[in-house]
Design a protein around this nucleic acid. Structure first.
Lengths: 200, 200
DNA sequence: TCGGCCATCAATCAGTTGATTGAGAGACAA
DNA sequence: TTGTCTCTCAATCAACTGATTGATGGCCGA
């Protein structure tokens, strides 16, 4: 008996989603260099040949994960309406989004970090990661520009450079030893003081 | 003839240093998941058994590299006298140090990034990386505290959080697409504006 | 001179790893 | 019913990988 009736049989699309989730969990746990096709199959609960049926190669798998990350990222950013908020409120929304992800979905940030490293050597990964990084950067930059325009942020603020610092600062906050909600918030508050207009 | 006279014969200490250098170059090129003992031996120009003679295991090798990074890092930071400089000058020295390393020794920063990722799962690596990160953080924090004290930096600046942002901002600057001396300097200048006292 | 130690190498091993093969079972249309 | 298409699996492969073994030649102290 090679395919018992009680074993879940899924269409390829949902299988691929399931596989992507398993891979992300494994990368978060053991990193890229510890990623094994057999472990992925085991976690999904399928045979390694079945895994290869849905995903032609390990390389394709990694591309799939990069795309799944990008899709998640953009979906989350689109979920919240930001139009009616002040630039400072938008920036704070960015912070709270990030904090929520860090605590409720840490695997996402971990895997993004790993993928970011790999993007340097793997064009296929870079093709999925670069737009995501660009989207985020653009989002923050637009907030900073709006804040500079309405006087709530510094007049001498350079949006592109400052966006890099804001994002870098957020990421750095998570890499401190023993990150907590409080330690994250301390860094976020400092970023706020970095960009706010002192004379307002 | 298995050990010809024209083949370099080195004592274990200098061999280990040589091996650490080769490993760092390989990690920078291919990342952690592409690191192979045979490639290391090839790059050093020795047999794989000789490699294992000097380094008992791959794990020990990685610890060795982490330590070599830490030693380099601290050596460079001790090299420049900072005592007679103003806080702002000290901060700028930090920037130029970092920029020099990025362009003259990019392998160092690349490998530090990879190791930082790995530190999360490997206590031995963490033991070497955490003090390095801590040293750097402490260095920047001291500069920021001094600047706040003498009024050249913001009075409401929180040194620990700001240090995280300064370091995170520097690192983020190198991860922009197509980083150049100019793009780095734009970020560094923005960091300066972030911390300076607006009323001075 | 000689004996022991150090650094080195060719050859080899056992376990791992990504990928393939050939076939079975269920669903569904003709 | 029959045929075919999709999804699944056990078994297997060839290549790779970290590590070991046993031996060799040179250096150095006695």
């Amino acid at each position: 008996m090679t395919a018992p009736a009680d074993l879940a049989r899924r269409d390829t699309d949902s299988r691929r989603t399931e596989i992507a989730g398993a891979v992300r969990a494994l990368i978060a746990e053991r990193g890229f260099e510890g990623l094994r096709m057999r472990d992925i199959a085991d976690r999904v609960g399928i045979n390694i040949a079945t895994l290869h049926y849905h995903i032609p190669s390990k390389e394709a798998l990694i591309t799939l994960v990069a795309q799944s990350l990008r899709d998640d990222f953009i979906a989350q950013h689109r979920a919240q309406p930001r139009e009616n908020l002040s630039p400072l409120e938008q920036l704070r929304l960015e912070f709270s989004d990030f904090r929520d992800t860090f605590f409720n979905n840490p695997e996402r940030l971990l895997v993004m970090g790993e993928m970011q490293e790999r993007a340097r050597r793997d064009p296929a990964v870079a093709a999925a990661m670069t737009p995501m990084r660009g989207y985020w950067h653009q989002q923050v930059r637009a907030i900073l520009e709006a804040g500079r325009a309405d006087g709530s942020f510094r007049a001498d603020l350079e949006p592109a450079a400052a966006a890099a610092i804001v994002i870098g600062g957020m990421v750095a906050a998570t890499k401190q030893p023993n990150p907590s909600a409080e330690s994250l918030d301390r860094v976020f508050a400092e970023i706020e003081r970095c960009v706010r207009n002192p004379s307002s």
